[in-house]
Nucleic acid binder design. Structure first.
Lengths: 331, 331
DNA sequence: CTGTTAGCGCCTTCAC
DNA sequence: GTGAAGGCGCTAACAG
């Protein structure tokens, strides 16, 4: 292993440890050229690398942040991770990624673990279940940014999609295209956009555009039951367009479509909130309302690093990102 | 922040630091019940959490491994990460994920950075370009496992897909189904399965099954040129089946299919090496030869942790995983 | 310009 | 059963 320490380099170069320390921290304003070169050679010769654990202990900063995602298998998460990492990298910060799996206990363990490791801050896709922990972090002024989900009544900066706007965008696009009997399907658990809210927005829109007002058009079930719910919906009511509330709901709907030989958009039109990798390839290509995942990740990283550096701006702390309509052929 | 240290707890509980240390390391064999309880209360009261940076410095072990993937946006990577993390988690090891982006300089920086952070070992999807670094790690006996790609002449345990077998599987499935004029398309850069090797295997198979022997059926181009190559291929030769060498090549082929209104499998059959999220949803559902990503990730993690614990088994160091045929409707 | 001296927070003998 | 002392590798005054 790398057992060579600063003392070894100091001995080899014939100077003291602190001089080496100066050198590795590039503070050679007051260092003679000759010792500089001697140190450089000693380091190369011994293949010395500073131990960042020791440095962190002393400096009380690890130059590392933690990211806790709800599920790394989601494309949204990986895109967010990617952009966080790119941004941090450019500022010489490191990133530890953890996977809470939408499991509050895992989330708690990871938050504790990361703080024990003295990471300088945290970006979390919160489960919403560990309220005391969140509050404690606010109280102790620990730098945290939430992503994807907002926890009410908590003063933690949050980077979110404007869900309301996303639903509006979808409905209005469908209305423009002449569809009237619009259903909204989503799985119950994914993303914390409260049902009442969703219903409220949907009702507002339906009345605004003089569409049928019927709560039966709003379906919110566990993933596994979504297909059968769709079957029931289609037999009980006329439906000419469906909004998939997220990518998982979309997959269920597409499975149903396949099994029942439905033709989109002839039998019904389809629009999804969340783009998917095959959106453009599917037949017909899927019109979607996409989340700007990369921008959101970058924003979260920026916010967190600002906090870490102490540039708190307490005033604003909700960053709503606007969805983007990608028009393809499914409606 | 969490400024409370062991000394604080010791003072609060009226014992010495070392006693606290005993307690947090669960070595209370020789500790009186009363002090045990006092310490427990002190810890709870002060909300004490051990600083793992300090502990790591002392113990020379961080209980953390690093994972460097080639590109976190690939589904294969995320699945591997996921299973590595699950496994490590069960053994109280932590995981730092980094994204080398198939960029040798990034790879080098991350390897150095992670070692500076004193991670106990590394799982790497190697670019193959940093030979001296790899060799140095072998020489210094640093625990490393390679994944997805093998570097010749290097004694580092590697977890790989049996690429040769994957091609065989695809060809033989097509032959069974009666297809004769089979083309293999892959992007030049992805995955290190050398062209000569691929050609050799393909030729062996074509002669074995009395298929046309013609190197024109093997197309290997940069991603961007793959679509036009496919166009040329289809006009110059009769083709009744195509093997996509990986998921990226598959996407290009599917794009071509869409643009030219090709009907699969009537116009040509299609099989992909690598499953994709929409494999089952596409119309027709795509037959694929899948990589067992979760098993591969787990194996890599097991190997690495064994090495870290000193259970070296030098004898064997290539772990070839068998691909799995998932038969659907595209051939 | 460079060396000396104290720690950072924890762990580990070894006395008491 | 518990405490005192030294040290992990590095940094940060402050001398010299």
């Amino acid at each position: 292993m790398n057992k060579v320490t600063m003392a070894d380099v100091a001995a080899y170069a014939g100077v003291s440890k602190s001089t080496i320390s100066q050198y590795v921290n590039k503070r050679y304003k007051f260092m003679s050229e000759s010792t500089k070169i001697r140190i450089e050679e000693a380091i190369k010769e011994l293949n010395y690398r500073p131990n960042s654990v020791a440095r962190s202990l002393k400096q009380k900063s690890t130059f590392t942040i933690g990211v806790i995602v709800s599920n790394i298998l989601h494309a949204f998460s990986t895109q967010v991770i990617r952009s966080i990492e790119d941004y941090c990298n450019s500022l010489d910060f490191h990133v530890i990624v953890c996977n809470a799996d939408d499991n509050p206990e895992k989330e708690e363990r990871y938050i504790q673990m990361l703080r024990d490791k003295q990471v300088d801050g945290l970006i979390v896709f919160p489960t919403g279940e560990n309220l005391e922990l969140y509050e404690e972090m606010v109280k102790t002024n620990y730098p945290v940014v939430f992503l994807d989900r907002k926890i009410p009544d908590l003063k933690i900066s949050s980077v979110l999609l404007d869900n309301e706007q996303a639903v509006k965008m979808a409905v209005e696009h469908l209305v423009e295209k002449g569809y009237k009997k619009i259903a909204l399907m989503t799985n119950a658990l994914h993303r914390v956009f409260p049902r009442q809210e969703r219903v409220r927005v949907f009702k507002e829109l339906t009345s605004l555009h003089q569409l049928p007002i019927d709560e039966g058009y709003i379906v919110s079930r566990d993933l596994g039951q979504l297909k059968s719910s769709l079957g029931e919906l289609l037999t009980s009511k006329p439906v000419d367009a469906i909004i998939a509330g997220n990518d998982l709901a979309l997959l269920e709907i597409l499975n149903y479509v396949k099994e029942h030989h439905i033709v989109i958009p002839k039998d019904f039109a389809l629009i999804s909130i969340d783009d998917v990798s095959f959106g453009n390839l599917y037949n017909p290509a899927l019109t979607v309302v996409a989340q700007p995942a990369f921008e959101m990740g970058k924003k979260a990283a920026e916010l967190l690093l600002e906090k870490i550096k102490g540039d708190f701006k307490e005033e604003e702390h909700i960053y709503l990102f606007q969805p983007v309509l990608i028009e393809r052929d499914s409606c």
